[in-house]
Design a protein around this nucleic acid. Structure first.
Lengths: 343, 343
DNA sequence: TCAAGGTGCTAATACGAATTATCAGCGAGA
DNA sequence: TCTCGCTGATAATTCGTATTAGCACCTTGA
């Protein structure tokens, strides 16, 4: 509507989209032939003379024609377009770069695959987050979709699963009416390893400071903590993130902070020597830590997660068999805040 | 192909989409009527009896029908896809965030417009940069395109102009066989203003340290410097960016550094008190300046440039008249490195 | 009783690409 | 001469929605 009415009014009218019809006219063949050439259909019942094929291809090259992705979609074909859905803007105005590292990996792989990335910025924002499903959702423009977010709406996930839409979540997700394909980080394993390490350094009373529930990423850390505590035969307490005093009063010698920021806050409060602090993940915001402390913790392989998410999606689209739920190991960061205990 | 084969293989085959035809059959009207009801078209020549309308709406409510957005866009001839072309990855692995601030504005506006952003990551890399035009270029997947880069290939620009492809450059560009639509920053004006300010502080011998040519952004700064020097009646020298010694030997009391990094390097070399330094633009890399110096200079309105680029593109697509070449003012940063001269 | 005018809807077509059925032309073999 | 088989293409249809032209039916008014 916008284009057609307005364009005709223009003297220097923007040229209409180039279509197969145009290519057909240019080369003196039919639209069908152009389509056949484009899709390399020279098998079985359909034949195109090599000379004709070349003529058509040349016209396509010269004109820069590309099939309209919308029309292709309607005809149920693939577009070499990967959708990327995020619940918040991909390019945040603030200094939070939560999505960025994942997208580095995604873009890198997309480039290698020769696919384009469609950022689904058209999704309307309801209650502060974008919605996947809404009247006019354009997910299907893409061949498949990558989902990123701290938490994904489970209703929407369930619907994606039920619809059989090809997608992969970056970050582990619980089942949603069926298994959810994901590439996550092994928070549980990394946390467990850190608990064992603490125990090895003499700590016998540990605190998990955080929610420990809600998003899968929290639950996983907590689960790893619980496993580690049990395996090492030490005492583990769970305290909420907002009550630093309770943590200090607990008598624990090592604190595992679910959020990096909480670890920083705690360190600022107690000073460097009294308490061992482990942070379970990297800052999602660039809070330039004034003290420059290197916290003991682990590194989330965000870039690899993004890249492998695309691998899994590709496998799904191609109908290949792959492990559709992957947990990548986190590299432990020795840091300086987990020390031998003096008690 | 890929998708469909998969689906048919499914036992729990996805039930065919509900269409207007289905609704039509359910209510005993025609598909056209359903469409008309859906679009609330009761104006002028088209009329629907209130009773019929209600019957159709009821059926739609009962069945949960939602129009296929893809088919809608095909009929509307408007894909609502904005291409974003960058010569390097949008999400760089390093700490260079050259593109980021522009994209904040672009995404913000795309969201408001209800458009999706297509990152043209499929463009093949030749000699370290992506190419717009190549066999199989997919630019035309998008309704129009935003181009970002320090320098754009002028041949490619010329071809875009010649083809009449709707696009807007972020950053001023010289004509390329025709005017290039752009939203740039007024480097010349900002630089000139800073030169005048320096002159007002008693500086009579100034140096422009940089290339002063090549990319439009360099040429513009240089041009502004030249204009400012002429207007203020002071002496202006032009020296290359790599020869700090020459700058120091020049006898100038104020140096205008084309690149932020050069200004930083110079400051490190001479110490804070000997020389006034003005940097003509912000760092494109996050070099955490160890001294924390706030350089005198100007702020490039990157976010606004991105947003307005989308505005111009929208205007072009809609055939509206707009200023298709815009230069946004840069806000001057007083900083601490341009001081009254003691000579 | 018949044109005029209004009402309520439908048939037909377009959008751009993919696909299937079919057709024209030609040479060879019977 | 007729038919078979092969080649190289095209016409027609499909996908789901939007839109326009126009048809059938009704009510007025003279």
């Amino acid at each position: 509507m916008r284009i057609s009415t307005d364009r005709t009014a223009h003297v220097t009218a923007t040229p209409r989209r180039l279509t197969q019809r145009d290519i057909a006219r240019m080369t003196g063949v039919s639209q069908a032939t152009v389509s056949l050439v484009l899709n390399g259909r020279s098998d079985g019942d359909v034949r195109i003379a090599p000379e004709t094929r070349e003529r058509v291809l040349q016209a396509i090259r010269d004109s820069g024609y590309v099939a309209d992705p919308i029309a292709r979609r309607l005809a149920a074909r693939d577009n070499r377009i990967i959708g990327v859905f995020t619940y918040e803007p991909v390019f945040p105005a603030g200094n939070s770069d939560f999505y960025h590292p994942f997208l580095v990996g995604i873009e890198e792989r997309a480039e290698a695959l020769g696919s384009d990335l469609l950022l689904l910025t058209s999704a309307p924002v309801v209650a502060g987050r974008r919605r996947i499903f809404h009247e006019g959702n354009r997910l299907r423009l893409a061949d498949g979709c990558i989902l990123i977010g701290r938490t994904l709406d489970s209703d929407e996930l369930a619907r994606l699963v039920a619809d059989g839409f090809p997608f992969v979540s970056v970050g582990r997700r619980d089942d949603a009416g069926g298994p959810v394909p994901f590439v996550g980080a092994d928070y549980a394993g990394a946390t467990e390893a850190l608990v064992r390490r603490a125990a090895g350094l003499g700590h016998t009373r540990l605190v998990y400071m955080g929610q420990g529930e809600g998003p899968e990423s929290h639950a996983d850390r907590k689960a790893g903590f619980v496993r580690g505590v049990a395996a090492a035969g030490v005492t583990g307490l769970h305290l909420p993130p907002d009550d630093l005093d309770a943590v200090l009063d607990s008598g624990a010698t090592a604190v595992f902070a679910e959020e990096h920021g909480d670890g920083v806050a705690l360190a600022a409060k107690v000073g460097p020597h009294d308490l061992s602090i482990v942070t379970l993940g990297q800052p999602t915001r660039h809070v330039t830590d004034p003290t420059g402390t290197q916290f003991t913790g682990f590194e989330i392989p965000r870039r690899a997660m993004g890249a492998q998410a695309l691998d899994v999606l590709t496998a799904i689209l191609d109908g290949q068999k792959t492990q559709r739920q992957r947990l990548l190991p986190c590299e432990l960061i020795p840091g300086t805040t987990l020390k031998e205990t003096h008690t």
